[in-house]
Amino acid sequence: MSGARLLRLAALLLGFGFLYGPIVILATMSFNASRLVTVWGGFSTKWYAALLHDEQMLRAAQISLSAAALSALIATLNGLLAALALARFGGFRSRTLFAGSIYAPLVMPEVVLGLGLLLVFVAFGVERGFLTLVLAHASFTMCFATVMIHAALKGCDRTLEEAAMDLGATPVRAFALVTLPLIAPSVVSAYLLAFIISLDDLVIASFTTGPGATTLPMRIYSQVRLGVSPEVNAISTLLLGLVAVALGLSALLTRGRAKGGGAG
């Protein structure tokens, strides 16, 4: 093996080791019977069992999951419409403002977004709680959904839709029957993405939620501030697993599309 190849192999190993090492250690520790990270007390699932009896954690998980499911739905629908406008409407008036506002949250500090959203809710006199949490999450995950659906729409062959309209379909019907099935995998991926981002968010949720709707990351955060705990390791591992499944699903869907639309 040549020196350059050896170096590249080393770079790959070090890179992946750096990325996955901490996660693997965390997951391993969740099965450690000992409370100390440096002592292996044998394999145990007792921290997972303890989770099942942690009412506050379960309630937080339930709130996070329902907020993620709802907000991702709104974000995907909004993102689909926004992506349609960006991909199909060309250079309309106020396009710069529209596109800029859609994409800005991608680079905006979360503390600023969270504070701004909170101020809107206060200005409108909306009581902070589950509703404001969903609205806030739907707003800041919308940009991710838009990016994903926009990319799919750009890669879509428009002549098919035009053919459908030539044959007498209305624009809405042509879109729903021709284009939507083609971009469906990306729409589902966009939903999963928005779901994951909402599920993970701590900062925006802390600003915009109320006392009755503490999310899972907020719960984890307050426990972490007290120190490393095996229960947090266990819930973290569960969340990592959930994301791994979602990612795998999303990869399968987009690969299926790449095969199906190979000619395009």
């Binding site: 992946f16 996660i23 965390l26 993405l193 490393v228 973290s236 791994a244």
Partner: peptide, 29 residues
């Protein structure tokens, strides 16, 4: 390879930061 390199980005940010506490603490790994 690039897929696996980017995958951790989609896992919880909070949890990835938390993982480093276990590594870096005085009595850490």
């Amino acid at each position: 390879l690039i897929g696996f390199a980017v995958a951790p980005f989609w896992t919880s940010f909070l949890i990835r930061v938390y993982a480093w506490i276990t590594l870096l603490k005085d009595e850490g790994i």
